[in-house]
Design a protein around this nucleic acid. Sequence first.
DNA 1: ATTATATACATAAGAAATTTATGCATACAA
DNA 2: TTGTATGCATAAATTTCTTATGTATATAAT
Lengths: 114, 114
Amino acid sequence: MSNNNLIKGSLQTIILKLLEENERMYGYEITQKVKELTAGEIKITEGALYPALHKLEADGLLTTEIEQVDNRVRKYYSLTKGGQKEVDNKMAELQGFVENLQRILNPTWNPGLT
Amino acid sequence: MSNNNLIKGSLQTIILKLLEENERMYGYEITQKVKELTAGEIKITEGALYPALHKLEADGLLTTEIEQVDNRVRKYYSLTKGGQKEVDNKMAELQGFVENLQRILNPTWNPGLT
DNA sequence: ATTATATACATAAGAAATTTATGCATACAA
DNA sequence: TTGTATGCATAAATTTCTTATGTATATAAT
């Protein structure tokens, strides 16, 4: 994940959320999407992405379909029902953590502000 | 750090920021402060905290003073000049990361909103 | 007495998530 | 034939953390 040593542990959440929005995606597509959304500031490395995808699949949160496109193999991932539930859990967990972080780091910050 | 596998790498930022606000603190005090600020949701473990403090000191960002209080030893930490600069760097880095995370996870979110 | 909890430091073994490096394979441009 | 892009994958090493353990003092509970 680029030069950021921050927020290890959010990769699963990123994958799940992107798949909630996009129905199905393949690995390389995810790396490009993240790069695009963050103006190149966050780069997901293959060494982090593929093991994460395999784990989510092993945990029953994702399913795969393999397709041939232009003589190249693509492995599409999509959310299972369990995966769809897990998106909300992970998002709530992450949001809660970020709020706690704000309470620690930003003394003037108030969670009720709009 | 409690049951949160999220945000590994933010501990240094937390330590530096708390020391910017409090002039000087000792290890146990830091764990209690974080617990208090987050209503017990984030608990910094000793096994994470002390090695982190030692590393920050070794890197020249913190200095220490040992004192006896009620027959117990306390090791007070405070920011060096280098440490004071590093607070801003780490905070900017973390804020930038959180913004990028929002761009990925919250499609309707706009960084310019007030 | 002695057990538990709180304060206060520290280190070591193990687990988890990542980076870095490497490998295979196709397509296209220089 | 060299480099870049696409597309998958795994292994070694590193970082960062959890869990467990150890030392020590003080106080409250059993």
